[in-house]
Write a protein that binds this DNA or RNA. Structure first.
Length: 491
RNA sequence: GGCCCCGUCGUCUAGCGGUCUAGGACAUCUGGUUUUCAUCCAGAAGAUCGCGGGUUCGAUUCCCGCCGGGGUCACCA
């Protein structure tokens, strides 16, 4: 049975690269009727970040990727020790007593000589019985794997094919650290085997240490799973995504107001394309057609502009009701402690803005909420864009006189607004239909005045929204309410 | 620097020896619809397939070299 896994280390927030792997792993598992598991690789006690595991699960939940099993490596220490000992017994690994100082000095010398920094196999010649005595005597040690000399190591990557390494370029890697924790190399290989992983999907940064992993499998006499090294998602400059730039974190997308399905759809198109050339498709559909072997080996650049376009497409396709649901939960998320505790991201929303917007939405009746969705879902790329456009709903705006009198004189505007105001006052029932009637009337007013149609709406818009940009005017007026509208128009 | 991977429009990509005067999407530009913004519609421009050699009747597709980009050289993953 097919079984895939992600193996993130809890060192921060859910990384986009981890999400990418989770997406591909999960899709592949579904397609092959297999399982997908999560394994927390927390063998580096120094880099452990509080809350990182939690953030990982929350992130996966947000994108709705579920898993069948979960493991934590720090709870499996005895397993790794047993396997390291086995390697010692088989003569494929050895105890190393070199001190930190000696290794540092060694590296310095090597870099001075401009040779690749590698362990000089100093302890490899120590007799095993003597080494065991030193270990028993309490001397500090690590365990290193023996790399065979003068040989070629052939590994196979599903999308890159065979890759050959010369063993002289492979270091006698530490597999057990001084503190009794295994390094990635041992832990991951042991776990992948024990957990019966059939396809190992991992980042391309592992290719270099691939020969060590292959050797480990050989030493244990285990069958290798299929290895797939993903494309490396880079930023627009072609370098690894950095935390500084924000969008390496999945949380960044959530905070900006992207839809999880759009993010998933977008990253699925990196290093892969739909057989029918489709751009927009659901995860469900993706999991029916995706295969690891169709992945390309390039390092795609993450184009935020296209990401925004795609998110806009998803936003447009949301029903008005769903739009409100999503918007509401986004606002709540931003207000929540998750937001407060997270890394800060640049945004033009202040913490209070989220609350104002949520309160505003809650103050509307269901029908009006849907109208709000209707006039907005077509014109934003992500929820964050909502504020500038709908600012006037939640806070006082200032009037730019220059904007107001851009095409017409102060007096002309004044008289036109007086007319409009009196029409509003005498509207009768305050509903969308009557307002639409007034809208038509206002269009006719333009020809009566000899103005362009846009010119009769311009001052209304500027006075109402404090901006030349707003959602559709009369819908906005309806949502804003009679009293507040008249007050705004009167200034 | 050693080793490894990669190299098609600005970006994501299709292409798996002839169908390619290289297709699609985003972005860009032009025009149209429109009361703002946006949407939407139509169209345009944009890639001598990194470069140079081979192999072949024929290379974007296969091989080699070069160049360029990236990755990696930890008791981090």
């Amino acid at each position: 049975m097919v079984k895939t896994r992600i193996a993130p280390s809890p060192t921060g927030f859910l990384h986009l690269g981890t999400l990418y792997q989770a997406l591909l792993d999960k899709a592949f598992a579904i397609r092959n009727n297999g399982k997908f598991i999560v394994r927390i690789e927390d063998t580096d006690t120094n880099r452990y970040v509080e809350g990182a595991v939690d953030a990982l699960y929350k992130g996966l939940k947000w994108v709705n990727i579920s898993f069948d099993e979960t493991y934590i490596q720090s709870e499996r220490l005895d397993i790794y020790k047993k396997h390291a000992d086995e390697l010692i017994e088989k003569g494929h690994a050895y105890y190393c007593f070199c001190t930190e100082e000696r290794l540092t000095k060694l590296r310095e010398e090597q870099s001075k000589k401009k040779v690749p920094p590698m362990y000089d196999k100093h302890c490899r010649s120590i007799n095993i019985d003597e080494a065991k005595k030193r270990v028993d005597a309490g001397e500090k040690f690590v365990i290193r794997m023996k790399i065979p000399e003068n040989t070629k190591i052939l590994v196979h990557d599903l999308i890159r094919g065979d890759i050959e390494f010369d063993s002289s370029a492979v270091d006698d890697q530490v597999i057990m650290k001084g503190n009794g924790f295994p390094t990635y190399h041992l832990a991951a290989m042991v776990d992948d085997h024990l957990m019966e992983i059939t396809h190992v999907l991992r980042g391309p940064e592992w290719i270099t240490s691939f020969p060590k992993h292959k050797l480990l499998y050989d030493y244990f006499d285990w069958e290798m799973p299929v290895f797939v090294h993903t494309p490396l998602i880079t930023d627009m400059s072609g370098a690894k995504l950095s935390k500084r730039k924000g969008h390496s974190s999945v949380d960044w997308f959530r905070r900006k107001g992207y839809l999880p399905e759009a993010v998933l759809n977008f990253i699925s198109l990196l290093g892969w394309s739909h057989p029918e050339g489709k751009e927009i498709f659901s995860f469900d559909e993706f999991s029916k057609v995706f295969d690891f072997k169709d992945l390309s080996a390039v390092s795609p650049k993450f184009d935020l502009v296209k990401m925004e376009w795609m998110n806009g497409q998803y936003l447009q396709n949301l029903s008005d009701e769903e739009f409100i649901n999503r918007l509401t939960s986004w606002l709540k998320y931003c207000i929540s402690s998750e937001y407060q505790g997270a890394t800060e991201f640049e945004t033009h929303w202040t913490p209070n803005d989220y609350k104002l917007m949520l309160n505003f939405l809650n103050s509307l009746n269901d029908e009006t909420k849907l109208l709000f969705a209707e006039i907005n879902n077509q014109r934003i790329k992500k929820f964050e864009d909502l504020l500038p456009l709908n600012n006037f709903f939640v806070k006082d705006t200032e009037i730019n006189q220059e904007l107001l009198t851009k095409n017409k004189s102060k007096e002309e505007i004044k008289s036109h607004m007086n007319w409009f105001l009196s029409e509003l006052e005498n509207l009768g029932d305050w509903n969308l239909e009557s307002l639409k009637g007034l809208e038509e009337k206002t269009v006719k007013r333009a020809s009566e005045l000899g103005w362009k149609v846009g010119e009769v709406f311009h001052p209304i818009r500027v006075l109402l929204a404090g901006s030349t940009i707003s959602p559709p005017l009369f819908e906005s007026i309806f949502i804003f309410g009679k009293e507040k509208t008249i007050k705004s128009l009167n200034r």
